[in-house]
């Protein structure tokens, strides 16, 4: 690693500058410009209209629903992610590789298809549709369906972040704790969890960003009832299609802000993790 960095810095100056220049232009063109465009459009008719668009009843309800959906999905996936990662990284059992594959499934499946799967299962014509209707339970085209779809698409984020990290750390520390007389729970809360705290936070941040931004799967199960089952991304689309560009981009700017905050927190976590010596094995 250090060897290759040294070689890289020995490239001629012009080549280095060229590469940096290309990277910067690319970043500006594909990330900076769109971000700027969102805020520019949102504020094109002044702050007054911007605030009005955000305080409109349908917009507020979309924001609320987005918060509810991610507020349920993230804790669910947090509990699941920790449990799954712990089991996979620290124990050997039958069907482990199957479990890993299953966790990855939502990454592999297109969100639209995940949404349709719920329609197939819980729709009026679906497998459980009649039973649900007979018991007057509304899943689809209502808040529970949106929460379910959000949980599904954000399912792997936390587990995927923790598994490689826990595997890399091995189980020596846990074994030591147990041999010193710690119970399973003590081992988990005092050894395992503190060791992965930055990775965990990192996973939560990514999971939350995706939960709030999810469009495809939620669009299929939402039913698009204004003020009731529209999340922020769906609301943006509706406003845009209504020629209401200022309002569309005003709501979009909130999502963009979320992205910026996510990136900031993410960098902060990476920096903290490096400082505390805990490696972050993302993308492993």
């Amino acid at each position: 690693m250090s060897q290759s960095t040294r070689i890289a810095t020995h490239e001629s100056r012009s080549v280095t500058l060229l590469f940096i220049g290309v990277a910067l232009v690319y970043l500006l063109l594909f990330l900076g410009l769109p971000l700027f465009a969102v805020f520019y459009q949102a504020l094109s008719k002044g702050w007054g209209l911007y605030w009005a668009a955000l305080q409109e009843a349908d917009a507020l309800s979309a924001i609320k629903l987005t918060l509810i959906a991610s507020g349920i999905a993230v804790p669910c996936n947090l509990v699941f992610g920790i449990a799954a990662a712990w089991a996979i990284a620290k124990f050997e059992f039958k069907g482990k590789s199957l479990l890993i594959t299953l966790i990855d499934l939502p990454f592999a499946v297109s969100p639209v298809v995940s949404g349709l799967v719920y329609v197939l299962l819980f729709g009026a014509q679906g497998w459980f549709g009649h039973w649900l209707q007979a018991h007057d339970i509304k899943l689809l085209f209502a808040v529970p369906g949106i929460v379910l779809a959000t949980i599904f698409v954000t399912f792997p984020f936390i587990a995927r972040e923790l598994i490689p990290l826990m595997q890399a750390q091995g189980k020596e520390e846990e074994e030591a704790a147990v041999s010193l007389g710690a119970s399973g729970w003590q081992t988990f809360t005092r050894v395992t969890l503190p060791n992965v705290k930055w990775g965990l936070l990192y996973g939560v941040i990514l999971c939350n960003a995706r939960a709030m931004g999810e469009f495809g799967a939620v669009s299929v199960v939402s039913g698009h009832i204004r003020g009731m089952t529209n999340t922020m991304p769906l609301h943006v689309e509706i406003l845009y299609n209504e020629y209401n560009f200022v309002a569309a981009f005003a709501v979009a700017s909130l999502l963009a802000l979320l992205a910026v905050v996510t990136l900031l927190v993410k960098s902060l976590i990476e920096w903290q993790a490096r400082r505390s010596g805990e490696p972050l094995h993302h993308g492993a």
Binding site: V119, F122, G123, A124, Q125, K138, L140, F141, I225, R226
Partner: peptide, 20 residues
């Protein structure tokens, strides 16, 4: 009165699938 809008056929499909 609540409103739901989308492509006409898509909306029909949603009602068939249980949009009340």
């Amino acid at each position: 009165i609540n409103q739901s809008h989308g492509g006409s056929s898509k909306q029909a499909r949603a009602v068939v699938d249980g949009l009340e």
